[in-house]
Amino acid sequence: MEAARKIDENDHTVYHIKTTGRGPLIETEHFCLWYGSSQALFDVSMDIELGLVTALIGPSGCGKSTLLRSLNRMNDLIDGLRTRGAVRFDGHDIYDRDTDVIGLRKRMGMVFQKPNPFPMSISENVTYPLKVDGIHDKTVLAETVERALQGAALWEEVKDRLKDNALGLSGGQQQRLCIARAIAADPDVLLMDEPCSALDPIATARIEELINELRGRYTIIIVTHNMQQAARVSDNTAFMYLGRLIEYGETTRIFTTPRSAKTEDYVTGRFG
């Protein structure tokens, strides 16, 4: 490794190393975002590869969650939000006027930092996306519950108490239930915002295992502040800093031979 490269805060070069994959599913193009008058994302351009796990890392407040929530337009809820540039999903700009936001969200499951199961039974939680779509066929619902819970590696633990209230599950189980809910309607993309930050190490290991199992079936984008986790579960990693994308490429390369001094400082634990 080269000796201490000087960090220049005004140097906004973006280091795009080659990413592995079968081609992009989501592309952001010069994407900027403002919360009211304060800008949270600056000119983010990156291609997210189909079927792979992409990790977003960076110090807290750097805009990881903002970027993630921009991908399924969850930010629409916030008053005074403005964007510029484009986010293309499957070739269509999702910030286009006539985008069907609800249809977009139906193609992207989302898992949040804190487990947020609904105060309903376990099976009702899993079938909620189907209920929203107006599917009431009992056999379809039952099959979905089993498939999604098995997909989220929760089936064995809860198969005997599907009618119990989901709030009675442990934190880790709740988070896996949320993953089951996110994959119940068979989306293309799974967005995860620090899914393990509220969990203990054992539950965390369980979720990481699960992400490895889901790899290939879904395009997964995971925000994490834990670099070991990013290294363990992701194929590609994007490093963000102060609302900018600094470096993006294959995970192994980001962690072993980062091009940017900022990335190097962050992954070696000198700040963050």
Binding site: N72, M74, L77, I102, G103, R105, K106, M108, G109, M110, F112, K114, N116, P117, F118, P119, Y128, P129, K131, V132, D133, C178, R181, A182, A185, L191
Partner: peptide, 27 residues
């Protein structure tokens, strides 16, 4: 009603009205 409930519902592809009907109002 926690905002996370609404976000969870919206992220599942529910409309605002569905979110109110199924999640917010019962709670």
């Amino acid at each position: 009603v926690p905002q996370s409930m609404r976000e969870g519902s919206l992220a599942c592809g529910a409309s605002r009205w569905q979110t109110i009907k199924y999640i917010v109002l019962p709670r």
